[in-house]
Design a protein around this nucleic acid. Sequence first.
DNA 1: ATAAAACCGGACTAATATAGTCGTATTTAA
DNA 2: TTAAATACGACTATATTAGTCCGGTTTTAT
Lengths: 132, 132
Amino acid sequence: MVKFSKKLEYALISLRHISNAGDEVTRVRDISEKYSIPHDLLAKILQKLKKENILASSQGINGGYTLSRKLDEIPLSELVSVIENGTSIVECMHDEDNNCLINDSCTIKDPLSKIQNEFENILKTKMISDFV
Amino acid sequence: MVKFSKKLEYALISLRHISNAGDEVTRVRDISEKYSIPHDLLAKILQKLKKENILASSQGINGGYTLSRKLDEIPLSELVSVIENGTSIVECMHDEDNNCLINDSCTIKDPLSKIQNEFENILKTKMISDFV
DNA sequence: ATAAAACCGGACTAATATAGTCGTATTTAA
DNA sequence: TTAAATACGACTATATTAGTCCGGTTTTAT
């Protein structure tokens, strides 16, 4: 029901690897081979991290990735929202016009939303460095 | 990525309805019609709740469900683990013998497990009555 | 120039998880 | 004995996630 995706796991693995490499640039191939992660899939993930300014990239024959920000300054919530498309735990029963199908009696969504908020707060307080 | 299933929502709706009905037995059909939930699907959910001793059932023509336990004594975590098959947020990269594929370098799982623990603690502290 | 890298987007397939259906048995009040 | 209910497993359908493939462009050390 509630679980993180492979993509998030791949991202964490990559960030740890790149972090450990220090100033040396890391190629997608280095990571994909070492951890048996599909190259093309991983490449897309790292591109997203670059757009989010978590990674810096250099092109050309000796190109690759380095960290752009310190991992203790990046909350896990940021990584999650970059990798996944949206973080909603709760989805109400609604029709295509977003009208609630349970009409006036729906008091389920709000309480579940509170759980989602608490969950997101956990993600906000945890920095990526906590996982590396 | 992280969200609750329809089944959990259906279960909460049903528990609230049955709770409001007091001593009167509630048929699956009552709930499925009122909230537009597929009858057979809902029936299975309520059967699971009966096995977990959250609901009591009576068969036969005037049969139906009533509450078996008070809703303020049932943590949401119990409902989740009954409805979903397991509550694991984190799944490690492992082969069919459960050996970690990242060998010695895998330190991703443990930290993510901590998040899962915190999440489960939230579910444990919330009673079903908080959502009804 | 060439090779190897990031960069880009989209369409596609495959695998998995969730949602929902169907058929049939069992129970029981009337 | 019949109708209406729960009980239960096998099945199909849909949605989501994971991964592949294509067809490139741009950059840069050698």
